[in-house]
Design a protein around this nucleic acid. Structure first.
Length: 875
RNA sequence: GGGAGAUUAGCUCAGCUGGUUUAGAGCACCUGCCUUACAAGCAGGGGGUCACAGGUUCGAACCCUGUAUCUCCCACCA
């Protein structure tokens, strides 16, 4: 068959993806086979594919495709996450560009816009995954705000509330003044910032001119001060015990309290306490019954308690108040100071600790079994160093703030019927809420009297149910899908979300399924650029994956991104890796072109071909065992490298060269058939990594019936191997390399046939001599009893090899080469003998080890003798 | 501040229970080849004081101690 000179990746990709889809290969339903399940880490519904997704999803696809070939019922569930903050931010931005302000819209109007946006942009990323070759069961595509999914989320909220594990409380939360919502601890990024430490003096009440000086990084919060705190053991301030101070500018009188929280060493040893605006101060305030003075509005501007600064932004006020303090003589000095400031992961706004009423999940009891299941190995982490990180977090887990002041998401099913702290019920519907509220209040509460909580739930409060809810495990717990597919097998995700998501899925699994959600967690690294920077949109250093696919082919990109990315390690990515991947597909393509061009005839099989077949058969099985082992250990990139070398080095460079007929010569049928069979096995083992080209060639290499696709073939099984073959082959390989070297040094063209003479001094596995003759391009290979003079020579395994080529032998070059080898061998001998002379070594080392050393010694001595004899022959 | 991990060739990484020649791979590099499968290629080659300093051991890249550097995680130090 005529085939194109180069592999046309894009055409093949389109063709085969459509074919696989049409045949329904990606779809799974429960049957008698063993299930293999992966749930995709759902990307943001409005997200666009980036390199991190490429890495993550390529790995999942490799695992799924291999599992499918191993005969398992493979099911990869795709889907998207509503990603409340990120998506809402995008919608707000988009509306703003159209001149619409969120504040001018009703909740329903806004949600209509949001859903419109979602319908338009949602799922782009899933379409992009198809280009990568992802074999997801698209019929199962889920979304965390699908009706049934939402129902699960609400049910879980109600259930946990009824179990007393969800409570409402006033807490200091991380407030994002830009998004106007609370964010979780995990969504706050702490960065070191150069700031100033302001030393401000407060007058002590009842004195004319006595002052105390505090140090603060946030002078604007002075307006919210409720106390000054000193360490009770601090002798410097004994005289202040029980006294009061006057807050600059606002001129309020505040107490001087004592608490050993205060670090005597830091600043001045006097701490100003602002319970409304600092987590620690809040705790201090509670301990000492201090007034909480909130001077900020939700958007980070000052309120009326900010006096003449009302309406101004907190950072502007910081500058202004510095000046005012200075002008009025309160500012003693300022110092440069580096401190950590929290930034919102989503909006990059500086997080403001803010006191507010929020909903929380009590985590302590919930997390205990989830910790156990990782520590005892029921769930395995790859690499397992992440167990430490996990344990540390789980042992120090804090309550989870799950309310978000947003509209896009699952609305909290709490209904208020009065102003009191307890005047609310948690219910699935208004009707239920009316009943419950009426009972609770002891009077009839109508729907008009009820006000549903305005907030939505944290995105992770829905995604922690992902492995359960994609199979409707909560809304329909007895259904056969959840029973069949759950627990899932492998989860592939980034270490950044080990707490956000992985830990919480394990918790939810324990609580609702009483079982772990997955057995293995593979942590990928972060994709970085050549300079080691994280790839990001804002830096513009991330290549567009789709463009890469168009340039190098999906298979090329898959190989490129996997080729050097061990689990848990960051991946410094460069497009040259995709080039390497593309070259790999090209190599396989050309191997096929070679085989395809051969004309088959009924001929005798050359002995060299027979040997080649025996060798490759053994080699394939040996490497397959290795590849399987690497897969079991989740060493995916090493498995790929093993496949890569098997194809390139063993199959192409050695095997095909060994059996290749002469130019325009036919090949014998026996060898051809064996080669096709090998090629098929090769296509199977590369398929998880390079699905498209393997399918394309699978159909080229043999006539196929309907449904005979490599994707659905069985993974090769390992056959027993005769280890003896390898020693024969290794000898041949060494001889051939030496011959090639001599050709190179003597500038002898490959097509010039050479004569090889062998002086056999030792027994050796000579089986592969016919291969030596062929690949060495020898006219003869003859065993002789005497040395051949005036010849190029080399020594392999104690035997001497000669290639007469009188005129071009460069005696001096030959001598220096010999000398070099002699010196090396002598050095080697010395180190071996050093060991053997050591009586303690001989006495303590295992016999086997000593025997090996003795053998090394003997071999080295023998080689030295040969080399010296050769040297002598030159003189 | 606490914790975890890392440091092996120019780059990315293997190196398992300490012993299999004097440490391996891929890429990059150098040299020679456009040899009718493939220059997206072939053949050959160079390159490492295993971060440093001690220690344990007959024997250390591997175990122990310390030092340095890096990465990540956690933590409210004003």
């Amino acid at each position: 068959m005529e085939i194109p000179k180069t592999y046309e990746a894009l055409k093949a990709e389109e063709k085969w993806y459509a074919h696989w889809m049409n045949r329904g290969y990606f779809h799974s339903q429960p049957d008698e086979r063993e299930p293999f399940t992966i749930v995709i880490p759902p990307p943001n519904v409005t997200g666009v594919l980036h390199m991190g997704h490429m890495l993550n999803n390529t790995i999942q696809d490799v695992l799924v495709r291999r599992a499918r070939m191993l005969g398992k019922n493979a099911c990869w569930v795709p889907g998207t996450d509503h990603a409340s903050i990120a998506t809402e931010a995008k919608v707000v931005q988009k509306l703003r560009a159209e001149g619409i302000r969120k504040a001018d819209l009703t909740r329903d109007e806004f949600l209509a816009h949001a859903f419109e946006w979602k319908d338009k942009h949602g799922g782009i990323i899933l379409e992009q995954l198809k280009k990568l070759g992802a074999s997801c069961d698209w019929e199962r595509t889920s979304f965390t705000m699908d009706p049934a999914y939402s129902e699960s989320v609400i049910n879980v909220f109600i259930d946990l509330f009824n179990k007393g594990k969800i409570y409402r409380g006033e807490r200091m939360v991380n407030w994002d003044p830009e998004a106007l919502t609370a964010v979780s601890d995990e969504e706050v990024l702490h960065k070191e910032v150069n700031s100033k430490l302001f030393y401000v003096r407060y007058k002590i009440v009842g004195t004319d001119d006595e002052w105390l000086t505090i140090a603060t990084t946030r002078p604007e919060t002075i307006l919210g001060d409720s106390a000054i705190c000193i360490n009770p053991t601090d002798v410097r301030f004994k005289q202040l015990h029980g006294k009061f101070a006057i807050v600059p500018i606002s001129n309020r009188t505040i107490p001087i309290i004592q608490d050993d929280y205060v670090d005597v060493e830091f600043g001045t040893g006097c701490l100003k306490v602002t319970p409304a605006h600092d987590t620690n101060d809040y705790e201090l305030g509670k301990r000492h019954n201090l007034e909480t003075i909130n001077i900020f509005n939700a958007n980070g501007t000052l309120n009326s308690l900010g006096l003449h600064y009302e309406g101004q932004d907190r950072f502007e006020v910081r500058k202004a108040i510095e000046k005012e303090l200075y002008d009025k003589g309160y500012l003693v000095k300022t110092e440069d100071h580096i401190n950590k400031v929290g930034f919102s992961e989503r909006t990059n706004a500086v997080i403001e600790p803010r006191l507010s009423l929020q909903w929380f999940v009590a985590m302590k009891d919930l997390s205990a079994p989830a910790l156990d299941n990782v520590m005892n190995g029921n769930i395995k982490f790859h690499p397992d160093k992440f167990k430490n990180t996990y344990r540390h977090w789980m042992e120090n887990v804090k309550d989870w703030c799950i309310s978000r002041q947003l509209w896009w998401g699952h609305r909290i099913p709490a209904w208020y019927f009065g102003e009191g702290a307890n005047d609310f019920v948690v219910a699935k519907t208004v009707e239920e809420a009316m009943d419950m509220a009426s009972k609770k209040a002891g009077r009839t509460i109508s729907s008009a009297d009820l006000k549903q909580d305005e907030d939505v739930l944290d995105t992770w409060f829905s995604s922690w149910l992902w492995p359960i809810s994609v199979f409707n495990g909560l809304t329909d717990p007895e259904n056969k899908e959840i029973k069949y597919y759950y627990p899932t097998n492998d989860l592939v995700t980034a270490p950044e979300i080990i707490f956000f998501w992985v830990a919480r899925m394990i918790i939810a699994g324990q609580e609702y399924m009483n079982e772990i959600p997955f057995k293995n967690v593979y942590f990928t690294g972060i994709v970085r650029d050549k300079l080691g920077r994280k790839m990001s949109k804002s830096l513009g250093n991330s290549p567009d994956p789709i463009e890469l696919i168009e340039k190098f082919g999906a298979d090329g990109v898959r190989v490129g991104i996997l080729i050097s990315s061990p689990a848990g390690n960051d991946l410094p990515f460069d497009t040259s890796q995709c080039e390497q991947g593309r070259n790999f597909t090209n190599k396989i393509w050309n191997a096929y072109r070679l085989v395809n061009a051969w004309e088959v005839k009924e001929l005798d099989q050359p002995l060299s071909s027979k040997l080649a077949i025996e060798w490759f058969d053994a080699k394939f099985n040996k490497e397959l065992a290795e590849i399987n082992d690497l897969f079991e250990k989740f060493r995916i990139s090493e498995a790929l490298m093993a496949v890569y070398k098997l194809v390139w080095d063993d199959f192409c460079s050695w095997y095909l060269e060994m059996i290749k007929p002469g130019y325009e010569q036919p090949i014998d049928a026996k060898t051809m058939e064996a080669t096709i069979v090998f090629f098929e096995k090769i296509l199977k083992v590369i398929h998880p990594f390079t699905p498209f080209i393997s399918e394309e060639l699978w159909h080229f290499i043999r006539e196929r019936k309907d449904g005979e696709d490599v994707m659905m073939e069985n993974w090769p099984t390992i056959q027993a191997v005769d280890e003896n073959i390898f020693s024969g082959f290794t000898l041949a390989e060494e001889i051939i390399t030496n011959i090639r070297n001599i050709r190179k040094q003597g500038n002898i063209a490959n097509k010039v046939k050479l004569d090889l003479f062998v002086k056999k001094n030792k027994e050796a596995n000579l089986t592969f001599d016919p291969v030596v003759v062929k690949l060495g391009n020898l006219s003869s290979m003859e065993y002789v009893s005497d040395k051949i003079s005036n010849a190029n020579s080399f020594i392999v395994q104690g035997n001497e090899y000669f290639i007469p080529f009188g005129e071009t032998v460069d005696i001096e070059a030959e001598k220096s080469k010999l000398l070099e080898e002699l010196n090396y061998t002598k050095g080697f001998l010395k180190s071996v003998q050093g060991k053997l002379k050591n009586e303690k070594f001989v006495a303590s080392a295992p016999d086997q080890v000593v025997a090996i050393e003795r053998k090394k010694e003997a071999d080295a001595l023998e080689k030295i003798a040969l080399l010296e004899a050769k040297m002598a022959s030159f003189n």
